[in-house]
Amino acid sequence: MKRFNKKYLVAFMFLLPSLIGLSIFVLYPILASLVMSFTNWDGLTPMKFNGIENYIQLWKDETFKISLINNFYYTGVSVPLTIIFSVLLAIMMNAKVKGIGVFRVLYFLPNVTAAIAVGVIWSSMFTKEGPINQVIALFIENPPHWLGSSLWAMPAIIIVSVWKGVGYFAIILLAGLQGIPHHLYEAATIDGANKWKQFIHVTVPVLSPVIFFCTIMAMISSFQVFDTIVAMTEGGPGRATNVLVYHIYNTAFLDFEFGYASAMSYILFIIILLVTIIQFRTQKRWVHY
């Protein structure tokens, strides 16, 4: 018995640094945030519970609703675009052409660079007289005033996020493509399937778990978009690009409404959880393992 206890003790010693840190800096904040979401705490005065007041307030909060709608717009457009482009890109990269390594390095580059820095670069490219509009002006009369227009600011943000994310997912998908056994294609060819049919009936089904994984990852991160917004629009013009995390940040660290902001952060958590659950529920219809 004594010998066993010593074994456990050794194991706990290995675990301890991580577990203590996780408890103090992650687990405790998760619970504290839940408790705070039922208070109107400003971070200084004594904490007062106000029940579900914050959550009721959120229903009536115009800016919060707008930030939610904006975020769903951003997610609904940027995630499908990112996934479609990365699947196409992965297929192209899977072609055994020379110099593919160089392309891979270049495609992945936007992903390693800081979102704040690339946001700054793109916001200078999206200026009214900037290079993007100079190109567009070759084709149409009045190019949009991207970041200055409440109609076009979000599409600009979406373009940047697709540009930044596509390489990352393409590389994950490429690894999945390379895992598809060749005999599947050979069998399909014998059955008389052309390239398009092979794509629909072999590539997509076999790749579907990876596409599924990428979609979830892209969705989760799309609900957490922040850096790009700060660098490019600061939520504007007006509230046109005010998204969830941007609104949470402002509520917590500019208005110091810690309780209210915590309630929002839990709504964010619930949205992410629901999106993940819905995806897992519906995956049976299109994901094949």
Binding site: P29, I30, A252, F258, S265, Y266, T276
Partner: peptide
């Protein structure tokens, strides 16, 4: 540990600041 991974950083952001 795995369950914690599912929780977005924004949930811990405010209490971490207070801490």
């Amino acid at each position: 540990y795995i369950a914690t991974m599912m929780i977005p950083d924004q949930v811990t952001m405010i209490p971490q600041f207070v801490l």
